[in-house]
Amino acid sequence: MKKLVIPVLALSAACQSPARQTPDEVSVSAKETTVAAASSKGFAREPSTVWEYLHAKYDANGDDAVALEEYDRGEGAFARLDGDRDGRITASDFRTGGGMMEDMLAFMAQMLVMQLFDDGVDSDLLHIAELEEAVGMLDVNFDGAVDVEELSGRIAALGDSDDGMLRTMLSRRDPYETLASVIDEDGDGALGRMELLDYFIRNDDGDMLWESEGRSSDAEEGERPPITSGVAEGEWAPDFELAPPTGGDRIRLSSFRGSKPVALIFGSYT
């Protein structure tokens, strides 16, 4: 889910083929089992979908499903991939089409839901009770749904937000449309109470978490140290020594002190 103003990651959006898994790489990173032997024959063509990739890499017994025994990255990851929770990773666990656009919409919808329904008491969390209360207050005609008119006041208020990201988003796409595209399952143009609850449940396990600083939906809370808000301007840049991906000499940041400024562009492929 990347806004396409970014050089590094925008190029990734334009990039048609995913990371190549050469036969050597597959056999090195997979276990030394028949999986490695089968997939080391190489791909006839590069996998272009997630299912193709997983199927080629892990389906050792060729039953068009990846079982937990065939997967070597842990039960947590397995469960996340097993979308329909049938205990196996199969093609039906993956949506077709949509892709990045769909994910971008999902991200925007989540942000909007937080902004529109949060009661501001504990601003990092949206509890299901807050959502219900908000719906109760907004649904002035008691039809069990929030429609565009009922939401219009709050949407208008969003425009006054000092959150730059939010304002950018609002200027690019109609917020109600974004919400409806993700939440309105029966297509009646309104956000039904049940649809909102379903949406909430699909997107979290009790509370929707939204950190205003260090916003990150892939942070594994509890598993890694808290993410700071980085290094403020004027503070010393934390020194480090890292190597290029192809090996070679490590480079120390402080080696440039006194001679040249250093621009650091942090990012990843996905």
């Binding site: 959006a13 299912w51 990045m100």
Partner: peptide
């Protein structure tokens, strides 16, 4: 936790 992949997005 928020996987992307396929449809032009790299699978990693």
């Amino acid at each position: 936790y928020s996987p992307l992949g396929g449809d032009g997005h790299p699978i990693v």
